[in-house]
Design a binder for these strands. Sequence first.
DNA 1: GATTAAAGGATAAAGATTATATTTTAAGTT
DNA 2: AACTTAAAATATAATCTTTATCCTTTAATC
Lengths: 133, 133
Amino acid sequence: MNNFTDELRRHNLKATPQRLAISSALHNYGHVSIDTLYEMMLGEFASISLATIYKNINIMLENSYIQEVKIPQNKTVYELTKSSHSHLVCVDCKSVEDVSVDVDEIVNKLNLDDTFLISKADLVISGVCKNCN
Amino acid sequence: MNNFTDELRRHNLKATPQRLAISSALHNYGHVSIDTLYEMMLGEFASISLATIYKNINIMLENSYIQEVKIPQNKTVYELTKSSHSHLVCVDCKSVEDVSVDVDEIVNKLNLDDTFLISKADLVISGVCKNCN
DNA sequence: GATTAAAGGATAAAGATTATATTTTAAGTT
DNA sequence: AACTTAAAATATAATCTTTATCCTTTAATC
Ligand SMILES: [Mn+2]
Ligand SMILES: [Mn+2]
Ligand SMILES: [Zn+2]
Ligand SMILES: [Zn+2]
């Protein structure tokens, strides 16, 4: 069961129908851009405002309920916050999939001879997915 | 010596004064956003058009003369194309610096048990630089 | 059920990027 | 060195994209 109501409240976000729908969309599709999210929402809420999408994406980001993934040469996508992972992006069909990479391992090697205090590492791997070759 | 004229031509780009200035700016400052690049150019070319900046950035990207670096929570920056490397971004002062990371090593591990054909990997490490802590 | 701060909707405003039309120029040719 | 021309620069309009504002609606608390 997916209780997005509780999860939203845990992040200090009121559980509105629009936010529950956004939660479901991200849960079901994984990585979604503003545009496609808006189109999806229009299916459920014929009169939803694009401003509502933007405002929610922003506050959800601030409250770490969701995270953004910036894609090279493409639109930024958003996903529900989950444990640290990296991304595979298909340059052909633009699909984004999760991949578990031990980024910490690489990052730790650096940290030793550096005074830079690392807080996170974003890795996006581009290529051609199995459906596109 | 930096012969940007030849380097531009090697990438099928006419060597205009504006492009030479953009080249110098990227060479001297490393990683520059559209905004700051425009401001810099205004110093040299009082009447340069913002459209010129955009058109040049785009064609330079297409011709691989420069590359873009998408920064989490911040503006995209551009740099002259150089050998593969990763980036350290300070969440405080927003400075971007190059760092050599063997991303291929990690990536190769994945490739073995995956049908995804990798073409490149972008790694951006966020944290606090030595000047900001 | 009443109260209220927060959120949604409609739309304007602001910001960012691209397109269009005209002038200027880099680079090749005579 | 002047001639030619396609490409680039400029100015500005047009087109997104994102945020702000105002008013209405509602989720959460009592
Ligand atoms: Mn993901
Ligand atoms: Mn760099
Ligand atoms: Zn694909
Ligand atoms: Zn710093």
